[in-house]
Design a binder for these strands. Structure first.
Lengths: 160, 160
DNA sequence: TTCTATTGACCATCTTTGACTATTATAGCG
DNA sequence: CGCTATAATAGTCAAAGATGGTCAATAGAA
């Protein structure tokens, strides 16, 4: 008995045989299957999660969409999933930096991107005793802005 | 599904590829796109704000106009300072995203870097009611990891 | 029973429109 | 010439429209 969720899953995967990504209208798809729109979310959550090798992006409002991207698992399958598990709910700066370095060595991120990431997770960016998210975000963001400029200087020095 | 607002945004930016400013008739433009004149104001407010690096001047009455000017920051030594001041101790996501877009349009960061930055300051990354910095960092960092993979997909899609 | 699937009520976000308001130029009048 | 009415613009703001998200209750399958 092909469950509704299975049908939707296969429908989406059929759409993705060619391309590694699809974009769809949640409501349209729900209507196509005659189900509640939230059913689509259920399918996405249970069959297209990160540990299944997919990433979901979406946008609300007029012209809204849901985009499903299949990750290419270079090397180990579910590398991202492994990294996310490694990080878990808590990670110290040293570990985070080690992971960033690893990503760079694997040529998955550039030098600049690695620097950006380090700046975002640095002690300096996050060690403030604050609670309001805007305040926290400001701290993270200021650090990233500084890094952008450092990168520009670096590029200039290297005549890029 | 190119939204009206997106079309109008691109239309205006196309007009500005040469010159750093354009002057237009609000009603004419609205008629050209078959929409309400106030739609133009919406686009200006959401895509051409000061944080996006633009200044709007206008005049009503006969011979009225709307002028859009791209702010010059070339050689401006205090651009970083200005941004840091703008951010201050608190900044909302919308403003942060506007600034990131601005940096990208000025070719100061790449598409990938902009995406990384957005992921680091996103609601999703920071809205957790947590206090321990390691926990918070984990949230930020997980988001960035996902972004790295999105970027890889993006590059592959664009055959870079 | 226990795990998975489905639904629906309520929420969040982004866009578009329209009624009402504000400003400016110009034509006509005294 | 100076004033005023009118036309020509643009601005504001709140409501409606268009999507997607979340979560808890319920139903169904194993």
């Amino acid at each position: 008995m092909a469950q509704l969720s299975d049908s939707i899953e296969h429908f989406i995967k059929d759409l993705m045989t060619e391309d590694a990504h699809v974009e769809l209208r949640r409501n349209e798809l729900a209507q196509h299957f005659g189900c509640a729109p939230s059913q689509i979310n259920y399918v996405l959550a249970t069959r297209f999660s990160v540990d299944h090798g997919y990433i979901i992006e979406s946008r609300r409002g007029g012209g809204g969409y849901v985009r499903i991207v299949r990750m290419q698992t270079r090397g180990e399958p579910n590398f991202l999933d492994a990294l996310l598990n490694r990080v878990g709910n808590s990670v110290d700066e040293e570990t985070a930096n080690a992971i960033i370095s690893n990503l760079f060595e694997r040529k998955m991120i550039t030098n600049r991107e690695a620097a950006l990431m380090r700046s975002a997770v640095s002690r300096n960016a996050l060690a403030l005793p604050i609670s309001a998210k805007d305040v926290l975000r400001a701290a993270v963001f200021r650090n990233m802005l500084v890094q952008v400029f450092k990168n520009l200087e670096e590029d200039k020095r290297n005549d890029v």
